[in-house]
Amino acid sequence: MLAIIQARLSSARLPGKVLRELAGQPMLGRVYNRLSRARHLSQIIVATSDDPSDDAICDDCRAQAIAYDRGPLNNVAQRFLDCAHRARADAFLRICADSPLIDPALVDQVIALHATGNADLTTNTQQRTFPKGQSVEIVRTAALADALQKMQDVADQEHVTRYLYRHPDQYRIQNFASDEPFGEIQLSVETQADFDAIAAILQQAGDQITWRQAATLRLANNEWAKRETVA
């Protein structure tokens, strides 16, 4: 299975976050290294834009010997489709570069589930029960190609799989749910507060931490912060 990591530097809320040092390592490198521990991934490619603002991502990938591909800045669906075609992949796993605690065991679970069915999209986000930052989607390349031809809304092009979710009558969607409701827990990095929280979790538990351990720590740290604020 091919994994494609979506990465850009022009984040609105936390610019440059994917190359920021997180517990001693650039966040993009952390995502790559955690994915590389998944047993059922055969290739990992960083898909960034061809805009000069993302040249530093390509420089970092070359320095770390990470494969990368470049495409449109805003039409991310086209960027993913072109990357999948060049890799000759019938399907690909989509991961965002702001997910430094992505769990390789969870990735393997979703890959195994996808292999048992005939879904166009296998996902754990249609009904969110996993923490943000543990989002895993496997997309059939042919399904994305079909959807891309029909996309009229630029938001669909930017968010890659949004069109498929909005048209469940046209595409076979298989959702993977957690046994407990963790959907409100934030393990992705969208703000400086998220960045600091993930850095604290890594300092407490190290890089081998599972998604469930990370979710438990984030909950515990949030409760501690609330008590400190009240005190």
Rank of each mutant, 00 (worst) to 15 (best):
R166S: 08
V139L: 13
N33A: 14
S99N: 13
H159P: 01
A214G: 02
L217Q: 10
A214N: 05
A84K: 01
E137S: 10
D153E: 03
A63M: 10
R20L: 09
G133P: 11
D50F: 06
A145W: 09
S11D: 15
L81A: 04
N175M: 00
N75L: 07
L9Q: 14
Y163K: 01
V154H: 12
D103R: 04
I209E: 01
R34F: 11
A63G: 10
E184Y: 10
H40M: 11
T229D: 03
T122M: 03
E158F: 15
Q6G: 07
R86N: 05
D179F: 04
A231F: 14
F80L: 05
A89L: 05
V154Y: 09
D54I: 00
D59F: 12
Q127E: 10
E184S: 15
Q157Y: 09
A225Q: 15
H40P: 01
S11A: 14
G16C: 08
V154A: 09
M151D: 02
R8H: 14
A193Y: 02
L144R: 00
A200S: 14
L41G: 08
Q170Y: 06
A3P: 03
W211H: 11
L93A: 07
A199S: 15
I66G: 05
Q25R: 15
D194R: 04
V76G: 06
A199I: 09
K150Q: 13
T129I: 00
L164P: 09
S36L: 13
Q149S: 13
